[in-house]
């Protein structure tokens, strides 16, 4: 399966994915309604998933949809719905004075830095897949990922897991209300 034989389909897939990502990202910024913004975010996440599949990273694509679109954005929406925002916006007053000029400055610095970085780095072109050694059929993809996570990056993996558990326990401790004291008042 050479890169040239699939040139046209690859281009179509890439353009579609890129459009999904860019349109979604712009939508998150431009749309007024928070629920619509969350939906735009899902569009972006789907675009990224498509791009992952085009790079033969099937597992990442699935996890992208399961974790980000299926859980995290749902939690966003859950909060938006619970707080009842989204119908009308009353928060036109900026809470931080002068955040817009500062944001513009930050964007300028970041974009300038990125361009400088891109100009000075070496470009690798011509490869449609950046997933390392050519992958075998089937689940070789997942196997490689699993091997890497549980051998080379085991400590980083376990540290992340511990961090997440700490975060969950912390959230529970912070969110829990002491009902006994309520009774005592």
């Amino acid at each position: 399966m050479s890169a040239t034989a699939y040139a046209l389909p690859s281009i179509v897939v890439f353009v579609t994915a890129a459009l999904l990502i860019v349109v979604g990202a712009l939508g998150v910024l431009a749309v007024r309604n928070p629920v619509h913004a969350a939906l735009s975010l899902i569009l972006t996440l789907f675009g990224v998933a498509v791009a992952f599949i085009a790079q033969s990273a099937d597992f990442l694509a699935a996890v992208q949809v399961i974790v980000y679109a299926g859980a995290i954005v749902v939690i966003f929406l859950f909060v938006i719905m619970f707080l009842g925002i989204g119908r009308s916006r009353h928060d036109h007053v900026e809470p931080l004075v002068g955040q817009r000029p500062l944001a513009a400055l930050g964007v300028a610095v970041t974009v300038g830095g990125l361009i400088a970085l891109l100009a000075s780095s070496h470009w690798v072109t011509g490869a449609t897949s950046v997933s390392g050694s050519p992958l075998a059929k089937g689940t070789g993809n997942v196997r490689q990922l699993g091997t890497a996570v549980f051998t080379t990056y085991l400590y980083a993996f376990e540290a992340t897991a511990a961090l997440l558990v700490i975060a969950v326990v912390g959230a529970v401790v912070l969110a829990r209300r002491e009902r006994v004291t309520e009774e005592a008042e």
Binding site: V35, V63, G70, V74
Partner: peptide, 28 residues
């Protein structure tokens, strides 16, 4: 028969939450 197989099921059950959720929210 995609290589990620059964994960498609999990991904789609994640997406189907949106149908129910947004239907209820959008009804006003």
């Amino acid at each position: 028969n995609p290589p990620m197989g059964i994960l498609v099921m999990l991904a789609m059950s994640g997406i189907s939450v949106y149908g129910v959720m947004l239907a209820g929210w959008a009804s006003g």
